[in-house]
């Protein structure tokens, strides 16, 4: 164990196998997306639909603007908002957030940790950094795989600027932060890891459904602002090669609000199994 940050190291080493599997899964999945995009041009893929794909399908391309799923950026963006990508993110976030506090409370190990001169703020800080590091690993795996795939394909290189891939990667990490913050706040107040994992899945699933419904059904359109998926637009980033700062700010603000709520919640509670 590291003498300086033992709680951070403990959180990551205990889940190192899961993180390695998730990162490997992410690499394989994004590699597959690049191969599929190269093999069948997106316009042909959706050629059967008159007038192109429905607007609600933008939810699957990661765009709120003009990026169609029937385009290279749209199809590659789909690999960054695909339910598989979301499931892997939620698994890492749910597991690491649960490990921050709730799992130690449930398992009873919190007793031995917190009778030592470890403040609750330190426990939370080291576990938050571990959570952010895990999300960084997964997003880096997805981004670098996509970047390498585009770099190796002249037709993709022409259609998608490389800086757009990194912009999408940054946006992906901000999206993860927007889920990690509230998940950590739940962990700070919860007694069981299942409560944290359930809440994390609920954030993700409800957020995705809200965005999809808002895009498909115009009366529900204002609801899209409540979903993190409205602000997470990798398709737009891939198409334009730029990072939109407002969505970044919103996603980070949600995450920071969650992290900030976690400390008072943890400070107020009893820490016994």
């Amino acid at each position: 164990m590291s003498a300086r940050f033992p709680l951070f190291v403990l959180a990551l080493t205990r889940r190192r196998r899961m993180l390695v599997f998730l990162a490997a899964g992410m690499v394989l999945f994004e590699a597959l997306m690049v191969v599929v995009t190269r093999a069948v041009p997106p316009a042909q893929l959706f050629g059967g639909a008159s007038g192109g794909p429905a607007s609600a399908l933008k939810a699957f391309s990661g765009s709120t603007g003009d990026v169609s799923l029937a385009s290279y950026p749209g199809l590659l963006g789909a690999g960054l908002v695909h339910p598989f990508w979301i499931a892997m993110q939620l698994t890492a976030i749910g597991s690491l957030a649960a490990a921050a506090v709730a799992a130690d409370v449930e398992g009873g190990t919190i007793e031995l940790l917190m009778v030592r001169p470890v403040t609750r703020a330190r426990l939370l800080a080291e576990r938050t950094v571990a959570l952010l590091a895990a999300t960084l690993l997964l997003n880096a795996a997805a981004t670098l795989t996509t970047a390498v795939g585009i770099g190796l394909s002249p037709q993709l290189r022409q259609a998608v600027p490389l800086r757009g891939v990194f912009a999408a990667g940054v946006l992906g990490w901000c999206f993860s932060v927007s889920l990690a913050g509230p998940a950590l706040a739940v962990s700070a107040a919860a007694r069981r890891r299942s409560q944290v994992i359930g809440a994390t899945i609920a954030f993700g699933a409800v957020g995705f459904a809200l965005n999809f419904v808002a895009l498909a059904w115009s009366p529900a359109a204002p609801l899209r602002f409540l979903s993190p998926f409205h602000y997470y637009t990798p398709g737009d980033a891939l198409a334009h090669g730029t990072l939109a700062w407002f969505p970044v700010a919103v996603l980070l603000a949600v995450g920071v609000a969650g992290f900030s709520a976690a400390l008072p919640l943890l400070a107020r509670r009893d820490l016994a199994p």
Binding site: G107, G108, E111, L112, R116, V118, P273
Partner: peptide
């Protein structure tokens, strides 16, 4: 923080990793 270094504790139900 000040008390922790001077305290030794063995829980009744010892849980370890």
């Amino acid at each position: 923080r000040r008390l922790g270094p001077r305290l030794g504790y063995l829980p009744g139900e010892l849980r370890l990793y």
